[in-house]
Design a protein around this nucleic acid. Sequence first.
DNA 1: GAGTTTGAAACT
DNA 2: CAGTTTCAAACTC
Length: 368
Amino acid sequence: MTGNADSGKIATEKDPRKLVFTKLEVSPVVRESPVKELPLFPPISREHSEAKDKTDEEGITSRKHKGCRCKQSKCLKLYCDCFASGVVCTDCDCVDCHNNSEKCDAREAAMVNVLGRNPNAFSEKALGSLTDNQCKAAPDTKPGLLSRGCKCKRTRCLKKYCECFQANLLCSDNCKCINCKNVSEAFQPPAFSAHNSPQVYRRRRDRELTEWNSCPAPLFSIPDNSIQNALGSPMSCSPKLPYRKKRSLMGYTSTLLPDLGDLCSLLVAASESATTTAEDQNRIFTKPDDKEAIELSSESESRNVEEEIQSCGRLIELIDVQYNGEEDSQCKTKTSVNETDIYMEQERAVLETFRDCLQKFIKSRLES
DNA sequence: GAGTTTGAAACT
DNA sequence: CAGTTTCAAACTC
């Protein structure tokens, strides 16, 4: 039932769980010693033999057990903490365990299988004990499980589900996590004091998580780290969604519309004009008895109306050019409906609506 | 302690 | 390579 290893003869003296390893051949498995010897994989991050039922600094209670409790994997897959840590199962609650000296062949085969998928699945030391061929499988990748980073979506990397958090590491550029809070000192568990106890911290964290989980908007679609990166945050964050950039316009980015910059410029100009008009009117209305001011008011108003109409006319012209131009070019090249087409249609629809509004605005100004 | 949630690993 | 399934740990009640 348990995965206890009968490792008396081959285990090291210091730690009976760690077994001597010589050479691991890919296929067929050839051992130099007549005694079955297993690879020695040093633990990566977890000394599960010392695992106890305890409450950590954050008030999180660890599960009371020694070793793994694998049921399906025979402790020969990375699901198994013992196997992943490079140690044989001892004092585990696992079922049908093959991660022991008795199932040496199966264990080595499983390791080769794992290394075939990810040559860095085990530690660097472990790789050193393997053959050159096995090590060459992925020469460019970093050793260690954590080098690839996490991909947490919901826990904001603040729970032990997160490998980085569990290993007491900050998430890095390698991570693909969403809404990560395991990124800087500001988000680390604070130093506890009378006013900042583990319980207080835990309540705050749980509240944040609750808020996060109850948020109606699909925030997980927003790459938090990307925003932080864009803001020039010193945090070490992972790049997220591949934003498509064509050109930057006054701090905004257009993905598709080449002339949107001009449109934005006009909008800003119109906005400034409107602001000026409002300021003029405000100044005038503060002096209701000033005859000169009243005259200035009517002059200014008519001039502004004229400018507004001209400005709107230019906008409409621009939109028409843009709209027709896009349509023409699309007729020539369009072969199928794709994502780009959809975005273009959306932008076109917005521009059309905006144009109609402008026309109505001009009409009302002319009538008044 | 049972049930649920979570994210990595494995698979397709 | 992306989506799905499987798995076991973490977590909740």
